[in-house]
Every structure is written in C-alpha cells, then in structure tokens.
C-alpha cells in the first residue's frame, strides 16, 4: 500500500467516525431530548391515535440506545417502516418516513438533489473562472489597481449576505433593465436553455461572493509559486513567459484552490439555504426551510444528517486532493 493510499484510507476512516458521532448527537438532540418527539415527528395536524402509532413505529418507548441502534440499522441496512396505512420497506440509507408527505425521507430528498446540484455546480464553474482568473491577473500585476480593488471586494464579499446581493441583482436585471425573467426553476431534463437562463441570477449571486475569496487565495498562492526556485529556473532556460505562468506556476498554485472548492461544494450541497429560498429553487436548502415551517421533523433530521454527510465527506476529499497534489502532506 502506498503512503498516499494509506493516508486516504485513514482520512476516510476518521470522517466515518465523525459522521457516527454526528448521527448520535443529532439523534439525541431531535428524538431523545424533546418532551414528545412522536408529536413532533407526526406533525401538528396528527390525532392522538396517529401520534401513538408513530411512537410505536419509532420505538420511542424503548431505551434511547435501542432506538438509536434501530435508526442506525435503517441507515445502513434498511428497515421496514409503517406508513400509517400499511408497512413498506425502506431501503438503505433509510432516513425515516415523512408522515406529512406520506413518503420516505430518502426519496423526498433525492427529488430535491438535482436542483441543488444545478445551482452549486453552475455557480462553482462561474466562481472558479472569475476567481482564479482575477487572482492570476492580480498576482502578475503585484501592487496594482486590481489588487487594491480585490482587497476591497473581498472585504465586502466576506461580509455581505448572499440574499442581499441576490435581491439587488434581481432589482437591477429583472425590474430596471428587464434583461432576465423572474427566476423560476426549470429542470435541466425539461428544457436546458430555460434551465440555464433561469439560473443565471442565482449563479451570479453566489459567484460574486465566492469568487472574491478565490481570487485572493489564488493570488497569494500564485505569488508564492512565482517566487520559487523552479520557476526562476524555467525562466533562466528561456521558457516563454506564457508557458511559465500558464503551465508551471499555475499548477503549483492550484492545490489550495482545489481543496477550498471541495469544501465549498460540500457546504453548498448541504443546502444553499438562502439562495434557494430567495430564488425559489426547489433544492435541499429550500426543503429544509419548508419542512421547518410545516414542522416535518423526519425531513429536518434527514436533511441535517445529509448536510453533515456532505460537509464531512468534502473535508476528507479536500484533504486527500491536497495530498495528491502536494505529496509532502502525506508525510506530516
């Protein structure tokens, strides 16, 4: 086994442990601490009979440890759950049953995933192009106006919430200029052109904030690489400047950018809650807000776990990607 494989395995194992701890904490928080979790899980409109049924189904009269074991079993091996009218099989990963929607949480969340993926991946492409581009440019003109502008924009971008940017963009492009339609999500499979057209504003809102961060990171990383010996050697050998920058310096500067991308993507997959709510994109984040409003506890718990899963996984992937790009990490 190479050092790198061992590092990756160890990192993934650690991630798994964190997830296990997280699932215990989440289960305890939502199903053990509240006075009547059955009532919460069933929803506000349930009758006493239905609540009692949910209580038996969730095994809420069992000791907490047994409940959790049952929950974990469903997560990894699937389980049979009663739906109020009958019993159906809930395959792994079983996140429980939404009594309000009359559907399994896993399939509910699976329906939401494409919208979240559309939003995150598109925004990522945009912020990478803008961010890395600006970063490289300002590294090459060290101390210039781009750099000072960048510092100002990063300062603002770190602070200003995404929904403010989104609303202002909407005012400008929809109301004042009338260039774009009021965003309403269209699935990619239905009409690719409308899909992209309606996602321009959400993508832009996220990308404006994120790209400032990426530009700053690329810039400092690029400046580090440019001052390294091997870059000087390339120049001394008469390699063309374009090739020095584009092929050699950029490659050395990218690992931290790749790692940050993995992290951000993980967080965003867990729910770009504000962006999705503002633009009415039916993704995981909007689903979280909706189910908190309707008090649909099983969906909320499922979403928290899924978010945790994406974030922890992204952390592990970021570390491994970093190690692949820069083997020195493995030895540390």
């Amino acid at each position: 086994m190479t050092l790198l494989t061992r590092f990756a395995l160890r990192r993934l194992l650690a991630a798994l442990l964190v997830l296990l701890v997280l699932s215990i904490a989440v289960y305890a928080l939502f199903y053990v601490l509240p006075g009547d979790p059955a009532r919460l899980a069933c929803g506000p409109k349930c009758t006493a009979d239905q609540v009692a049924q949910v209580r038996t189904q969730l095994g809420l009269d069992d000791p907490a440890l047994a409940q959790y074991a049952h929950f974990l079993h469903g997560l990894f091996a699937g389980t049979d759950i009663s739906t109020g009218v009958g019993t159906e099989h809930c395959g792994a990963p079983c996140l429980g049953f939404s009594y309000q929607n009359g559907e399994q949480v896993t399939s509910l969340l699976a329906q939401r995933l494409p919208a979240t993926a559309s939003l995150s991946l598109g925004a990522m492409a945009l912020w990478l192009v803008i961010g890395v581009g600006t970063g490289v440019l300002s590294a090459l003109r060290h101390g210039g106006i781009t750099e000072r502008l960048l510092t100002a924009v990063t300062l603002a971008g770190n602070a200003v919430p995404v929904f403010i940017i989104g609303i202002l963009l909407m005012l400008l492009f929809v109301s004042v200029l009338g260039w774009l339609p009021f965003p309403s999500y269209v699935p990619l499979t239905e009409d690719p052109e409308q899909w992209a057209w309606n996602l321009v504003l959400p993508w832009l809102s996220l990308a404006i904030l994120e790209s400032a961060k990426y530009a700053r990171l690329t810039r400092s990383s690029m400046l580090d690489t440019l001052s390294e010996d091997h870059v000087r050697t390339f120049r001394a050998y008469g390699v063309r400047e374009r090739s020095v920058i584009g092929r050699h310096a950029l490659r050395g500067a990218l690992p931290p950018v790749i790692a940050l991308t993995a992290l951000d993507l993980g967080t965003m997959f867990g729910g770009a809650v504000l962006t999705e709510s503002l633009f009415g994109i039916p993704g995981l984040g909007k689903s979280l807000v909706d189910s908190v409003r309707t008090e649909d506890l099983p969906v909320v718990v499922g979403l928290v776990l899924v978010t945790g899963f994406f974030v922890v996984l992204a952390n592990a992937v970021a570390d491994v990607l970093y190690a692949v790009a820069d083997r020195r990490v493995v030895l540390a």
Partner: peptide, 22 residues
C-alpha cells in the same frame, strides 16, 4: 479539540434552522 473540529465544519445556518424547529 475534535468536538471543535466538528463544530467548525458544520454549516451554522442549516443547524440553526433545524434547532429552531424543535
């Protein structure tokens, strides 16, 4: 320290929303 790591990794907003629900 491990607890801190987990707290730092979790997206605050998602957890805040979920906590407000119960």
């Amino acid at each position: 320290s491990r607890t801190t790591d987990v707290m730092l990794a979790l997206p605050t907003l998602v957890f805040a929303i979920a906590l407000l629900a119960i």
